[in-house]
Structures are given as C-alpha cells and as structure tokens.
C-alpha cells in the first residue's frame, strides 16, 4: 500500500469556516430574541426569507462560476450576510426590499468580486447602502414597538398593505426623532424626557437590542472568533467623540451613553465591522480601523444626512483596510524596532 505523504503539519485544530460562521449566527440569537420580544415575528419572517434567497443566489452564482456547491453552500457565510442585512433593515420592510438587498449583497458585492474571501466590501453593508440610497422611504419606516404575530408580520411583508395600515405600525426611530427635534431648537434633555420613545439611555427598544448584541459580541470575543481590537476601538472612539461634544454643549449633543446604546452600534461593532474579509487584519491596523469607524459613525450621525452611520462608516473604512494593513505590519521577531 502506498503511503500518504502530505506536507507538515500533520495535525489540525478542529475548526472550519462553517464553525466560525455558525458561532457568529449563534451570537446573533440573543439580539434576534429581543427583536421578537419587542417587535414580534416580523424579523423571523425576514430572516427565513432572506436565508432561503441568499442560499439560492449563492448556489446559482457558484454554479455559474463553476465552483463546488457543497463546501461553499455549507460554509454559512451567505447566511451570515443575509442575517446581518435583515437586522439592519426595518423588520416589516416589504419582501422586495429584502430580496433586492440580499441579491445585491450576494451576487454583486460577493460573487462578482470573486466570492468568499475576495470581497473588498462587507456584502451586507453594500446591500444595505444600495437599499438606503434607492428606497429611503421604505428603509426609514421603522416598525413601532408593538409585537406582531406571525400572520400579521407576514401579511405586512408580503402583501403590500395600503399606506394607512403601514403608517399605523411604523414610526420614526428614536435617533431620527431626536435629530428632527434638535432641528426645532429643543435640547437633548427636553426631547428625551418628553417622548415615550426613550428609555434609560437611548431609544427604549434600541437600548435593549444593543445590550443583547453586546452580549453576543462579548461571547464571540471569548470564543476567539473575533479579536477585541475592532469593537473596543470603535466603541471607544465613538464614546470619546460623543463625550467631547457633549461636554462642549450638552444641549445640542447627546451623551456618550446615548450614542453607545443607539442605532446599530453594537451590531456594527461586534458583527459588521469585524467581518474579517473586508476589515484590517494586523493588530494595530484593527485598532485604527475600528477607531476610524467609530469617528465616522459619530460624524455621520451628528452632521450627516442619514439617521445612522454604521454602514457608510464601515464601507469607507473597508476602502482603507489594505492601506492600513500595509503600514501597520507588526515588528517581526528578531528584527529590531525600525522594521
């Protein structure tokens, strides 16, 4: 019998991309549970629909690109993309919004760039940005915090309900609300104190969601699926920016706590900015990359034209990632300080 003679090492850790992706999905579950509790079953409908669509699109593209189906369909990366996109758009967004977003992410942002591992931009965020620019009305009609049952949610998503029905179940996000009110010369404290939208730190629903994504994210760090650098740098820089401006003028600029508990911050910090393919990979590079995102999130939120800035901040830093990596190469063992 001829012997098997592969190259060393002959031992491998029990790990795989599928394992990594499943852990990411698992870490999203607390946040998803909070969604269901706060908003009802809309998110579950969206996630199921998006998952099927993403796998279908992935299979089609793999077939077109003549890649083996099984290893790539089971690697979980398409599902992660689909879920992150769903968690970024309103839970009762019409089905075609989800469909366009998923197809954009999988076909364009992922496979046309070469598939898994080759996409320079975070596919979910490319899909989200495309949707936000193309369909701003649907994308900003956030669901009011009231739990819908499965039938209600499904009909809202798939049956194109009339405008009045939709208006009854949607409302501005707390951050949107704050922004418009600040535009009317109210102070931050006034707005937050006089609206039922707000809870302890920020939007009532948002602070809960952010807490849940934070918990999932911390678990990912503990599992060594993601490094601590990007989330910590992003949250720290966002908090520092907010603190500086809040100290300068607390009436016009919300507190760091408000910013940390608002919008897609925790989802962004632990699940989106940490997408390894499109992020920086050197230890110092990850700090710079995360910090850059945090600063941009604050800038876009405060002075930009969009309610939240995570998607654009991540995409902008995706562009910088290769350059950041190039200039932050670690000092190799035995090479002195200069190189």
């Amino acid at each position: 019998m001829s012997l098997y003679t592969p190259s060393s090492p002959h031992m491998h850790a029990d790990t795989s991309i599928a394992q990594v992706m499943s852990k990411v999905l698992l870490a999203l579950l607390p946040g998803i549970a909070a969604y269901v509790w706060l908003f009802g079953w809309g998110i579950v409908v969206q996630l199921s629909f998006a998952t099927l669509l993403a796998l279908g699109a992935e299979a089609l593209m793999l077939r077109l690109r003549r890649r083996p189906l099984l290893p790539f369909l089971t690697d979980g990366s398409a599902i992660v993309t689909a879920w992150l996109l769903c968690l970024s758009i309103p839970p009762i967004a019409p089905w075609w919004i989800t469909a366009i977003g998923v197809l954009f992410a999988i076909v364009l942002a992922k496979h046309l760039y070469g598939g898994l591992g080759y996409n320079p931009f975070n596919p979910a965020m490319v899909g989200y940005a495309a949707l936000l620019i193309s369909f701003p009305a649907e994308m900003t009609a956030w669901q009011a915090p009231q739990p819908l049952d499965l039938a209600q949610a499904a009909s809202l998503i798939f049956l194109a309900p009339p405008r009045e029905v939709l208006d009854a179940v949607t409302s501005a996000t707390p951050m949107d609300f704050l922004r418009t009110q600040l535009g009317l010369d109210k102070t931050v404290d006034e707005v937050i104190a006089h609206s039922p939208l707000f809870g302890y730190l920020a939007g009532k629903t948002q602070e809960i969601l952010n807490l849940m994504f934070l918990l999932g994210g911390l678990w990912l760090i503990k599992q060594r699926i993601i490094g601590w650098q990007i989330p910590v740098a992003m949250l720290a820089s966002l908090a520092i920016m907010a603190a500086v401006f809040h100290l300068y003028d607390p009436e016009r600029f919300a507190s760091p706590a408000f910013h940390l508990a608002s919008g897609a911050v925790m989802l962004g910090a632990f699940f989106i900015a940490t997408d390894p393919v499109s992020a920086s990979t050197t230890p110092r590079g990850r700090l710079i990359y995360g910090a850059g995102i945090g600063i941009l999130v604050y800038v876009i939120r405060t002075w930009g034209g969009y309610p939240d800035g995570v998607a654009f901040a991540v995409l902008l830093l995706n562009i910088c990632a290769p350059t950041i990596d190039y200039y932050t190469k670690p000092r190799v063992f035995g090479h002195g300080d200069k190189d």
């Binding site: 991309i17 591992g117 992020a279 990979t281």
Partner: peptide, 13 residues
C-alpha cells in the same frame, strides 16, 4: 488529515 481547502477569509487566526 487535511480537509477541503477553502479560500482565506483573512480572519487573522
């Protein structure tokens, strides 16, 4: 033994 090689996802492990 080695499993099917996938593309690098730049995870940095």
């Amino acid at each position: 033994g080695r499993q099917y090689a996938m593309p690098c996802i730049r995870c940095g492990a």
